[in-house]
């Protein structure tokens, strides 16, 4: 099982990351998720600034991946989260999960994203034409993560 967790300013290439995971001979399924900067404020979003907690971030993401590994039979996981200033439509985050069969890959990818959203120390600040403001956490994200703990 290969785990790769990266927090970086630079962009990433989905095809390269996919190839790396797909090389594993026992891998029968790869699920990838990519999150992008979208215009969520009825027009006028220029970009996002992503702050994080250096040191803790990598550890928190690794803990989440290890928890996923306990729940499903996985062959490889890659998590990349970008930080710094990101313009509209740029890639923010990528989760790729390789496993023997699709169900584990789909579930683990979803689990990792739900936990990342509520446990990993990242904060978004929106830059709009009218100014800047910090994004508030959504109750729906909290509920999505809690559903997994009830299934445990």
């Amino acid at each position: 099982m290969s785990i790769s967790v990266r927090v970086q300013q630079e962009d990433f290439d989905l095809a390269t990351e996919y190839q790396r995971l797909a090389q594993n001979k026992q891998c029968g399924a790869v699920v990838t998720f990519t999150g992008l900067v979208r215009d969520s404020v009825e027009g006028g979003l220029r970009g996002l600034e992503l702050e994080h907690y250096p040191g803790m971030t990598e550890k928190a993401l690794t803990d989440i991946v290890e928890e996923a590994q306990k729940r499903w039979d996985l062959r490889g996981v890659t998590v990349i989260h970008r930080v710094g200033y990101l313009s509209l439509n740029e890639q923010i985050v990528m989760v790729a999960v390789a496993s023997g069969h699709r169900q584990a890959a789909f579930s683990a990818a979803s689990f990792i994203m739900d936990y990342l959203k509520t446990q990993a120390p990242f904060w978004k600040k929106e830059h709009t034409e009218e100014g800047e403001h910090w994004v508030e956490a959504k109750q729906s994200d909290q509920q999505a993560a809690e559903q997994w703990s009830q299934q445990q």
Partner: peptide
């Protein structure tokens, strides 16, 4: 110890 508002990554 770190203090912060709810996280909003992803």
């Amino acid at each position: 110890v770190a203090l912060f508002p709810p996280v909003t990554g992803g």
